[in-house]
Amino acid sequence: MALIKFIQQLSPAVYRLTVAAPEIARKHRPGQFIMLRIDGNGERIPLTVADKNPEAGAIDLIVQTVGKTTYQLCRLKAGDNIKDIAGPLGRPTAIEKLGAVAVIGGGIGIAPLYPIAVGFQKAGNDVISILGARGRDLLILTEKFAAFSSELILTTDDGSAGAQGFVTNALQKLLDAGRDIKKVIAIGPLIMMKAVAELTRPRGIPTVVSLNSLMIDGTGMCGCCRTTIGGRVQFACVHGPEFDGHLVDFDALLRRANTYKDIEQKRLAKYLG
């Protein structure tokens, strides 16, 4: 059981939950995720940890309402309990001093990017942050990123905040301007990570992406999150969730992400009444 200490609505569809999980808070490293199950009938879903407070014994989860489970989670109140929470899972991000590093977050992917970006900054890198979303409501954590980024670029599809366009437009500009970027870390929708990887590939810039695959146990037992990386079957939960963006087969992942779409839509409609 994990107690919800605090829940805050960040935008119409995005919530921050502060959850008591002392051991996970102590052990978590940037890039790692947790699995949770709300109740005895619930599914296990992976969520990345957006922040942690080891002294208070708590972790922050930032959740967008997408399906039944995330709606249910965001409707919980402070004082409610989450039945099961396990982690930290996956391999931590390899953080090292390189020079200028571009961190690119799309939508809810901005949340897991935050501890990674802070890690790179603390390791002595210049962190250029590019954050994008469909509209300003989904553009989260911009103030937190402003606090440590050497440069912060915002984009929205509809132009309601920052520059109108995609994160890749912003990255393209930086690259065209001849900026010496040593590494790119991109977390967001598959289609965004694919576009970033295509942009950096011809320039040979190492690009790390974080996969938010379907999972059940999150410990390597089921193989649901398998993906082919450079010709080898890898499990996002154990070998990832971060992989070399230039080796990821995004088209296969896009297909797999739709496996339960029909079932999930029906479930959600039923849940929302």
Binding site: M221, C222, G223, A252, R256, N258
Partner: peptide, 20 residues
Amino acid sequence: FPLFMDIPGEDLNGVYSANE
């Protein structure tokens, strides 16, 4: 830790490991 056969199409939707 489930083994797969490493044959084409094993990542199609509807292909499961028995564990999953």
